[in-house]
Design a protein around this nucleic acid. Structure first.
Lengths: 412, 412
DNA sequence: GTGGCATTCTTAAGCAAGTGAACAAAGTAA
DNA sequence: TTACTTTGTTCACTTGCTTAAGAATGCCAC
């Protein structure tokens, strides 16, 4: 299984990526619409699309209604053309996902977490898991684009492809990506959970390609992945979107990050569980995620105390969303991750309310709020989408030049 | 005075812009360094630089030390090659600036504000002011690239080139840009003060081209301009950076924007002045900006009450800076605008302290804090820089493709 | 049907940005 | 002086894209 087998030539790299991304975002689209959307000429679209069809990535799926002349040929991504594997490493467990080009989940399974095992052993185990499932579900290995691996917390940009604390101290100096590339025989990408979840949402959530949106991810902590114009915004050291550690109360409680009044310290799962325990709610006490799940279920049943505690958390999450929206002028905030998967029905209305009432540019446009369709496995799905994105649409930025450089930017 | 006269061909548009930007950022640089920094080949650099020299934008200013072979030829921007006019419209007054390519101020003057005059009259007045001063200081009109106009508050993206409330209600439906283009005979750009201040800082502050940084602007309100990789981040409706209206206190005072606990409502000039008056500090009462100036001077003299009030404001500004830095993973925050020009010595240490102690990724890299060298006229200088940027470096985004697409991003 | 006509899509010639390779230029080291 | 190193330019060639022409495929009037 070679790396380049499923790879694609660099020809037409940027337009190819943009066109592919538009096809993905639209679901179904014609060449004519692509010319309008990209600003390229019909001739270029024709040749690039021809190439995409020859590569098997795109299918012609019928004709549109005629508008007086030759009817347009409709194009779609071939969801079965390529696949990617996504892995979410967490102390709670390892979640695996195999996704296809359409962002649909082909296989999904869970295994116990790495614990304190030797990294090399864990890598071998992961390799075995993937090989076995790929064979079992009958995915052609030649169509596997790569493996995305995601974990909470920042990825080390310096030591090259290793995970850093806070979560998995044993792994600090282990060259995870290289080891996995050897074990799995696929290119490997690392990233953090929130960023991956954002790309996952972008890829499988049918989000329009020009949008500025953020995925608020609540798992162990609270983070956000930011996507602008189809590319991840990473900031200067890949630590952008740390919305869990913005201060919303100068006199708030201390946070593990060293600051006080952080959103995470006030509204994160650990804080919620602690507040519930202080309030006398009975919880199993076998870890924060399980306790949070119990609490969320109690709130869903309408129990007073749990609802009150989660609503308080939701208020702060709303502030985090509002902050993101004000700073980045977002169109959309997606709530995702295990915590919102469990308690989304409580959080969504509160976040919606806050954005409707307090988003600064609300007069100009609203900020939509949505809950991810894959919230529980968002990180793993995102890990797979990371690979799809980087292999199929590694574009730098938008490709339209403004018609004239000296004009007021006319954002939507 | 035609528009295209000083314009530049679109040839080599993107690399040309990137190279020009690198020369600007470095001050002095050689072709070899440009090849390294851009990733382009020596051949390309050679031809593009040749063109820049032919256009008169760049000068060869001597040789570097030999490193064993032919010494490098050093390149610099010719600051006198082009000029731009910047205008800052505010109710307090109209500030004019003529800046050269180096971002240096060639002329600077102030006139009373527009008041309730007829927009057409004001436009004529502005045109006269500019023509007179251009003639007086001896700037060759053919070298004038354009006119940047800046005002507080958002720019209307819909009605096309007009100012919107909150500030200048009379101007809502007036086609300012078109009218000014006619009156001045130059291309006109509109933007808001914070964004312009950020570009101004980028252009004249010698900021490295790859940086992610924000300019915190405190004038009438509090806003921020965000620059990533040499381009303004505007968000989906050009309202990004509204850091004055992030919530830092859920139970805080109401803000004119309709929310509560906004940074601006707690720490903006109006809030500071109001707090001072409540505390019994004597102020002239002829407008917020003058009252703020009196207060800042009193604090600079060491008066207890004013210092206490400004420090409280500085704490919130620190939180705003921290929020920006956490969300965007910034390397640098520049404080600018009239308010920081007056009271920067009080605000800078507080913001520095907060970022050093509470920026989430402080383990990875620090966030530098600086005060603008042009803080009082930052908006007007930025207006001029807006023109320089858009005429000379209208690039879309960074131009380096990663060596290999499947790798962890290795931000600095 | 058959010939307009509109629209979509493809093909062919040409332009321009960028590359690789050869070479010219300007210094240092023996 | 000769050899070597580094810098900078020239030139043939690739490639992404455009313009222009034409082919394909529908509708509609007759």
């Amino acid at each position: 299984m070679s790396h380049s087998q499923a790879g694609l030539g660099a020809a037409h790299a940027s337009s190819r990526a943009a066109i592919l991304d538009l096809i993905r975002a639209s679901g179904t689209i014609s060449r004519v619409e692509l010319t309008r959307a990209t600003g390229l000429t019909a001739a270029t679209i024709s040749t690039v699309v021809r190439r995409l069809i020859d590569d098997g990535l795109v299918l012609e799926v019928g004709r549109a209604e005629s508008t007086g002349g030759k009817p347009r040929m409709l194009l779609e991504l071939d969801p079965l053309a390529r696949y990617a594997v996504g892995v979410h490493l967490d102390h709670a467990g390892i979640t695996y996902v195999i996704a296809n080009l359409g962002g649909a989940i082909v296989a999904r399974w869970k295994r116990p977490g790495a614990g304190s095992d030797d990294p090399r052993e864990v890598v071998a185990r992961i390799g075995g898991e993937i090989a076995a499932t790929v064979a079992r579900v009958g995915v052609d290995p030649a169509r596997l684009l790569g493996l995305g691996v995601v974990s909470p917390g920042p990825i080390s940009a310096f030591t090259g492809m290793t995970l850093t604390p806070p979560v998995m101290q044993a792994w600090t100096e282990f060259p995870l990506a290289a080891a996995l590339e050897d074990a799995v025989g696929l290119p490997v990408l690392l990233d953090n959970d929130a960023t991956a979840a954002a790309i996952g949402e972008y890829w499988s959530g049918g989000i329009t390609s020009g949008a500025a949106f953020a995925a608020l991810y609540m798992g162990t902590g609270i983070g956000a992945g930011i996507i602008v114009d189809g590319t991840v915004y990473r900031g200067s050291s890949s630590n952008a979107g740390e919305v869990g550690h913005i201060c919303v109360d100068l006199d708030g409680p201390p946070c593990w990050c060293g600051s006080v009044g952080c959103v995470e310290a006030l509204a994160g799962p650990a804080a919620v569980v602690a507040a519930a325990r202080d309030a006398g709610v009975e919880l199993p006490g076998r870890g924060v995620s399980e306790d949070f799940a119990v609490l969320a279920r109690a709130a869903a049943r309408g129990e007073e105390q749990p609802m009150r505690i989660l609503r308080r958390s939701a208020r702060y999450v709303g502030v985090a969303a509002q902050t993101l929206a004000n700073v980045l002028d977002l169109e959309l905030v997606v709530l995702t991750g295990p915590a919102f998967a469990l308690a989304g029905s409580l959080y969504v209305p509160e976040v919606e309310r806050r954005l409707a009432q307090s988003f600064f540019a609300r007069g100009s446009h609203p900020v939509r709020v949505a809950i991810s369709t894959n919230a529980p496995e968002a990180a793993a799905v995102g890990a797979a989408a990371l690979v799809l994105q980087s292999e199929l649409a590694p574009r730098q930025a938008g490709m339209r030049m403004p018609e004239r450089s000296l004009e007021v930017p006319t954002g939507t």
